[in-house]
Amino acid sequence: MHQYINTGSKDTRSGFGEALLELGKQNPDIVALCADLTGSMKMDAFAKAFPDRFFQTGIAEANMMGVAAGLTIGGKIPFTGTFANFSTGRVYDQIRQSIAYSNKNVKICASHAGITLGEDGATHQILEDIGLMKMLPNMTVINPCDFNQTKAATLSAASYKGPVYLCFGRPKVPNFTPADEAFEIGKALILNKGMDVTIFATGHLVWHALEAGKILEDQGFTADIINIHTIKPLNNSAVINSLKKTGCAVTAEEHMMNGGMGDSIAQLLVREYPVPMEMVAINDTFGESGKPEELMKKFGLDAEHIVLAALQSMARKEQFAAKYAH
């Protein structure tokens, strides 16, 4: 099992903030907008360094999306910042018409995604954002796994032309991907090579997938562990090539099962390479208040549940093989 070291837990949103400041220094066309969450979004450094290129819109997300779309007309590259809930569900039609259908070069940057938003509870814990965004034609959907990857993804989104939804989180989580690792939109990262099962993970669940890999190894199984940081476009060949080797899958994400990364992989597998697959995700329920780690445990989003899902997926593979042999 390849060893990944936590170099010090950090929140992914701070990776976004650092990258945004860097981008501001590199490119005068980078502009940023925020709907009254500058501190939470870690956009204050950019706002301070580039006051002319930072637009505080107030708690008016619909207007923010429209203003961002307008700023692209004139060659600007706007990064909008608010929580995932207010970045997607609240402004779906604005994104749909003024950004996605109009193919505008807006980067919709969303923090506090998922259940790990924590104590604020279900009103703020959107678990549908990836599904909403991936259904829109022209939209690229990225969910990085740690501070370093969020920083790299933000830099990469700026050089990609077209609408991007980039979601990240609130809590401090292990920072383990190399700081100098190149981020290529749409290219899955193979974190560990194994033979028995493939674990596809995105966002905060990637670290848990690595933990699960260690537990499985102790039980005598080896896992391919693949970081799907880009949910759309999905790296189809990376998914299928791994499953040709391992023959069964687990997906793990901090999102609703409907519409998430696992849903994308399931669709691909049904069409092109059907194998047993289990999904670690939230199943058709709203979240609730609590500490992030308590919620992850309660909703079954942790290494333990990934291991159980992997064992189940491997068992189904064996059952299929036995049935097929007869």
């Binding site: 429209g66 961002a68 307008g70 007309i73």
Partner: peptide, 11 residues
């Protein structure tokens, strides 16, 4: 949506 877009284009 248009007035927001126009504001952005004007900025």
């Amino acid at each position: 949506q248009g007035l927001s877009v126009a504001c952005g284009a004007a900025l």
